[in-house]
């Protein structure tokens, strides 16, 4: 009980602190190559949380499609996307952010989902229930995106 209320309080505090600066999914500004220069929250990303978003089935589930030495200890790596070894060496934070927010702005027609986008979908569902969505939230929160960007940026050959 005490834990839950603490978490709620912390959540509220965080929300009000970062609210003003959080960029809404519809307001993200891309450059002509699909990169997103500005942080979505203004709060530095937490790489450790970024890693857990990547490997968690319930959150990013990036591992469904991507392998990397950095999460080689997790079971079952996908092969649909390229390995992300060293990706922080050849992609800037702005490029990584753009790829996460909406990868189609960088890779036309890609199968990689857009993680910070809430409109323009065909028959959007309510998560994995098969029912119609009432209101769509992005697949990841703004801060989770920043956390993943911070972790990917740390992957250097």
């Amino acid at each position: 009980m005490r834990l839950t209320s603490l978490t709620v309080a912390a959540g509220l505090a965080l929300a009000s602190a970062s609210f003003a600066e959080t960029v809404a999914p519809g307001d993200v500004v891309f450059d002509e190559y699909g990169a997103v220069e500005a942080s979505l929250t203004g709060v530095a990303g937490d790489p450790a949380n970024g890693r857990s978003v990547i490997v968690s089935k319930k959150r990013g589930n990036c591992i469904a499609c991507h392998s990397a030495e950095a999460w080689a200890d997790e079971l079952f790596h996908g092969e649909v996307g390229p390995t992300l070894d060293g990706v922080g060496g050849y992609r800037s934070a702005a490029e990584l952010r753009g790829i996460l927010v909406n990868s189609k702005k960088t890779f036309e027609g890609t199968v990689m989902p857009a993680y910070y986008k809430v409109d323009g979908f065909n028959r959007p569902g309510d998560a994995y229930t098969g029912k119609a969505a009432k209101e769509l939230s992005p697949l990841l929160t703004a801060q989770e995106i920043e956390d993943v960007v911070a972790f990917l940026a740390s992957l250097q050959d």
Binding site: C65, G78, E79, V80
Partner: peptide, 12 residues
């Protein structure tokens, strides 16, 4: 999934 990516692993 089934035309572009058959033969690939998607997670398990």
């Amino acid at each position: 999934c089934h035309e572009q990516n058959y033969g690939n692993m998607i997670r398990a």
